[in-house]
Amino acid sequence: MIIPLAHILIFSLLLFATGLYGVLVRRNIIGILISIELMLNAANINLIAFSKSTSLSPETGQIFAIFVLAIAATTAAVGLAIVLALYRVRKTVYTDEVHLLKW
C-alpha cells in the first residue's frame, strides 16, 4: 500500500505545529528542547516523502535527512550541556525563573 503524498504532508504539518505549540507553551527548558526535535523531525518526514515522489535525484533528500539527524543530536548535546550549566548556577530549568536579563 502506498500512502499518498498529501497525507504524509498533512501529518508532517501537524507534527510541526505540535512542536511549535510545545515551544511556545512549555515552561520546562527540556520540554522545549524535545519540542524542537519534533519540529526537526517534521522537516525530516517532508524530505523523505518528497525524495520518494520527485524523479530528479531521490537520494539527496534522504542524505539531507541523515545530516539533519546528526545536527539534531549535536544541538541536543550542546543544549543539554548548557541546561546543566544553567542548573548549576541558577538551580532551575524553568524559563520563567530565568529572568535576570531584561530591559
Binding site: I29, G79, V89, V98
Partner: peptide
C-alpha cells in the same frame, strides 16, 4: 549567572 542565561536564551 548572566552568561548562562544568555546562552540558554540564544540556544532556544
Amino acid at each position: 549567572r548572566k552568561a548562562k542565561e544568555a546562552a540558554i536564551k540564544y540556544l532556544l
